[in-house]
Structure formats: C-alpha cells, structure tokens
Design a protein around this nucleic acid. Structure first.
Lengths: 236, 236
DNA sequence: GTCTATACTGTGATAGAC
DNA sequence: GTCTATCACAGTATAGAC
C-alpha cells in the first residue's frame, strides 16, 4: 500500500501501454536484482531486459532505490496475498494441520511461479540499505503473522509435537520453502514431486504421528494432488 | 584445495604476523560480503573492518575476485569438513537416522558459529560471476554428497518415509538449516532450542513414525543435549 | 609489509531534443 | 513518452615511497 512513486507516474492500475511498460520494467528489475544483487543491479541492465533505454526508467520510477524497493515489496506482498486468499477459501471445518498443509503447497507453487520476485526479495533481504530493509521487515512480518497463527492454532488443537519451539519451527519450515528458489528448476524434476515431498516433510515434522482421519488427506497420489486438501471441501 | 593466490603470499598456514593479518582480511571480507553482497563489497570497507589500508590487501590477495572467492570457498569447505569429521567420529553401529540427527546438529552449530562465512556463501551463491560460481558449485556438490549418502542410507535401511523424493527431501532439509543464518540471533532465543527443534523436525519429517530404540536418542532434554547422539558412543 | 598518491573505468542521474 | 549527451562521483588497481 501507498507506493511512494515520484510525481508523474501514469494512471496506476490502468491497462494502458504506459502501465504495461511499467510492469515490464518491474519484471526486468526483478530479473536483474535476483541474479546481480542490490549493489550489482544497474539500470542499464534493467533497461536492456525491458527493451527500453535506461533514462526512460526515470519516467516511471523516481529513483533506482524506489524501483528496487517496489520489486522487493512485490516479492513478499503478492505471496502473502496469495496464501491468505487460499487459506480463506478453505472450508470452516479444516483442521489446523490441514491448513498448514495447504499453506505449504500454495506458498511453494506461487513462489516458484513468480520466482524472480521471490528470489530477489529473499536473496537481497539482508543486503539492502537500512531504510528499505526496515519497510521490508514490516511486510515480511505480516506474512510471518499468517504462519504464526497457523502454528499456534495447531498447537492449541494439540496437533503440534510438544518438543517443538513454535518460532524456531516456523522459521525452519519457511526456510525450507524459501530455499527452493535456490535449487528447484522446472527442467529438473516436477513441481508436483517437490510439493508432495514438502507437504509430507512438514506435516510429519510438525505433527503428532499418524491419527489420519478418513479420506481427509491421503498420502497423496502423484500429480493431480494439487488442490486435494485445499479446495476439495469447498462444497462440503 | 589449491587456492590460486598471486605470487608472493607469505608462508601459508604459518602463524606469523603475516598469516594473522591475512586471516583478519579474510574475516573482514566475510563480514562485508555477507551484508553488502558481491557487487557491494568494496575493498575500502574490507580494509576498514580489518584495520588496515585498502592497498595492503593486494599484498595478500592478487585481486578482489580472488579474495571473495576464497571467502565463499571457506564458507562451504569448513562446514563440510566439520560435519564430515563429526560423522566419522560416530560409533559404527549408529543407525542412519541417528547419523542424520547428528549431521543436523553439527551443521547448525558450526554454521551459526562461523555465520559471516556461511551467510556470505549462502547469500551470494547466485550472484557471483560465472567462473567463481562454477568452482563454488563443485565445492557445494561435495557437501551435498555427504547428505545424499546420509539419506540414501536411511532409505536402504527402510527408515525413510516412502512418499519422500530423496533429492527434494535433502534440499528442503538443507534449506531449513541454511536459512537459520537469516533469522537466528544469539540474543533472541538459545541455540539449543533451535537445535532441538530442528532435530525433531527433521527426524520426524523424514523418518517412519516412532519405533524408538531403547536409550538411543531420547526426545532430548534441554541444553546439555549437545553431543548426546554424536560423540557419546565414542567409547562404545 | 604497509602507506600515499593517482590513473582509469563505469554508472546514476539530469537536461533537453524529438 | 522516449532518447542523446553529459556531469559528477565512486571504487579498483598500481606505482613507488618508507
């Protein structure tokens, strides 16, 4: 909310050519930022990637810093919105552990879909200047809150193993998920396999052994697992 | 192995003043590299941190790139050596899952102890130039091999849950561990708690439920857990 | 071994044409 | 809206004093 773009940026959220160019610059910046890092991100490279000339960037973003900050922000904010919506769409009687299961899947699929933004935000979190970092931390905090609640609910329901410290458990799980951008590659193994393994790892890592309800969340098949646990019950 | 340092670097591995200065520069470079990133690492900042003047760096390292590459290399290599030695010290009858348990603990404790080097290697893995990256990947591969073997052994022994894809499981676990440098802070919760939570998470996440052998690896107490599973059996 | 002084290169940002 | 031209500055690397 309240991106502090310069003074002239064209009618935001419109679908004009201008808005599309702006989005192209943002995509290009995410691409460069994720591979070259904060200090290594040159506007000339962003411009090349976006197929415009460097000075044109200043028409849409008031400075290099503002552009980079928006990329980092988008990386976390879109992920949070996506996961939050998916969780809201779950039926009311979904158990805490099933909700965690769904969050793992949605986080992974979305993060790997917008991997340039996610990777940019992840890799550069600790390398940006203080002022960007402060605002970024508050955005990351919002996403962390979602997971804090998920785990707290599981704990209250007695579904969380007792020897786990909630904060450490949460960060370890998020670490496992975030790290996927560093090694997963669409050409090297299917996404479904990663999702299935991650769900299993997290569910069994956090939860008390077994006690599987009927039909709820079977050990999952292979590919069509997708929205098994998340949207299935929508009609129920 | 075979660091390609310039032409004059003083009698390596000696404990001369020269060798100590070299180590100070390396530490300083790790410090700066982990917070500023590859492109943002300025030799003047490294020099400030090491309490020398910038040009003095060139007496010990032939170029900025060589210095940075050595930092990245040290980050992974020392971790690998540490974990490998700890695993070798385990008694011969240690079960595969107990070995994984020990590896988790050793990885965490060592990584967080040399966090500047580890963080530098982790954050910049995807941002360094192609040639450094290539050599770095081979070093990371060696460490990955250790974990590949650990998980393969567990699989052969039937201790690994069947719905886990070995490679994905390995990378997810390593991600959870690596990511700790991003959030763990000595002043914010004890290391023992993190280690205990991580061990529990991984053991239950990877392994078949329960089937706890007598006395082997109890759910662990609180702090003195340290070398419980790792060195205990040294005499056995 | 370490410092002072300096050459050289590359990049962020702006002014102003089209 | 986008480009050409240009400025100012930061940072690597080296030569050479001590």
């Amino acid at each position: 909310m309240s991106r502090k773009s310069a003074g002239k940026p064209p009618t935001e959220t419109s679908d004009s050519k201008s808005a599309r160019t702006r989005e192209r610059i943002l995509d290009a910046a995410a691409h460069v930022l994720s591979r070259r890092g904060y200090a290594g991100t040159r506007l000339s490279d962003v411009a090349d990637q976006a197929q415009i000339q460097a000075p044109a960037i200043y028409y849409y973003f008031s400075s290099r810093e503002v552009l980079i900050e928006e990329v980092m922000w988008v990386g976390v904010a879109r992920l949070r919105e996506h996961v939050a919506e998916a969780l809201d769409a779950l039926p009311a009687d979904t158990t805490p552990m099933e909700r965690i299961d769904a969050a793992v899947e949605e986080h992974l699929r979305y993060q790997l879909a917008i991997s340039d933004f996610a990777t940019a935000a992840i890799r550069n979190a600790g390398q940006v200047p203080e002022d960007i970092r402060t605002r970024q931390l508050s955005e990351e905090g919002k996403y962390g809150d979602i997971w804090r609640a998920l785990i707290q609910d599981a704990q209250k329901a007695g579904e969380l193993r007792a020897d786990l410290e909630p904060r450490a458990a949460r960060m370890l799980v998020l670490g496992a998920l975030n790290w996927t951008t560093e090694w997963w590659n669409p050409r090297q193994g299917s996404l479904d396999v990663v999702v299935r393994t991650a769900r299993s790892l997290v569910r069994n890592g956090l939860g008390a052994p077994a006690v599987q309800e009927e039909g709820a969340t079977p050990p999952s098949g292979t590919s069509r697992t997708r929205r098994a646990a998340t949207t299935t019950g929508r009609t129920a």
